[in-house]
């Protein structure tokens, strides 16, 4: 495993920890999009079906279980926890996220590495992950005051995606037979979606003012 991949996985892990910290200790999910969290739960459930068929490493299995368990428990907290759910910005979080799922499924049926159930689900999870952040970005834009933890959560997620792109470039040049077009294209699309957020985040950091996205 190269340094970019490890750093990418760690920023992903930290992003989840930041979100769990906000939910568990502050008992708040203000500014967090339930729509995005539901999409992530679906992304990991459909991608990690190979937990039952392929063993890669202990690291791989543990990380998969962490991302599965955390994404499902975050959705549960936001929907059902009696304190946390009250802080959910339901009226602002109106993105019709299920509309993203059908085109992703159709695309997965058309473009996959092999036409089998697991491979179609794998491609679907990649297409869906590419757009899963959209409800969160829309919610951020609508929220007047973005708190630090929410800003850091999205920053860490974006960093994770950018590091994975570096990991692919590194692997392409150092490994033979390492080609994953579906992962690359959907991953690059996903990373580009964060570009705008990055821009405003670093502007606010540089000028030492609170993060606010233009309406």
């Amino acid at each position: 495993m190269n340094i970019f991949r490890l750093a990418g996985d760690m920023t992903h892990l930290f992003s989840v920890l930041v979100l769990l910290l906000k939910i568990h200790t502050i008992k708040s999910c203000a500014g967090i999009s339930l729509k995005t969290q539901e999409l992530y739960a679906i992304v990991f459930t459909t991608r990690y079906l190979d937990l039952f068929t392929t063993y890669i490493s202990l690291y791989n299995t543990i990380m998969k279980l962490i991302f599965l368990g955390s994404s499902i428990s975050i959705v549960w907290y936001m929907r059902h926890h009696k304190v946390v759910r009250r802080s959910y910005d339901k009226d602002q979080d109106t993105f019709r996220h299920y509309l993203l799922m059908l085109p992703c499924l159709l695309l997965a049926l058309l473009i996959n590495e092999k036409f089998t159930f697991l491979e179609v689900m794998w491609a679907f999870s990649l297409y869906l992950e590419a757009v899963a952040i959209l409800p969160q970005l829309v919610l951020l834009q609508r929220t007047r005051n973005i708190d630090n933890l929410t800003g850091q959560y999205v920053l860490l997620l974006g960093a994770y995606r950018a590091l994975y792109v570096l990991n692919w470039i590194y692997r392409y040049f150092t490994e033979e037979n390492y080609v994953h077009w579906i992962t690359w294209v959907s991953g690059i699309v996903q990373t580009l979606l964060y570009a705008d957020f990055f821009y405003y985040y670093f502007q606010s950091w540089k000028n030492n003012v609170k993060l606010q996205l233009p309406a």
């Binding site: 990380m63 590495e113 994975y164 080609v179 077009w181």
Partner: peptide
């Protein structure tokens, strides 16, 4: 084929 590389990423 090249496309059948192992899916070892998360």
């Amino acid at each position: 084929t090249k496309d059948s590389a192992v899916k070892d990423e998360l």
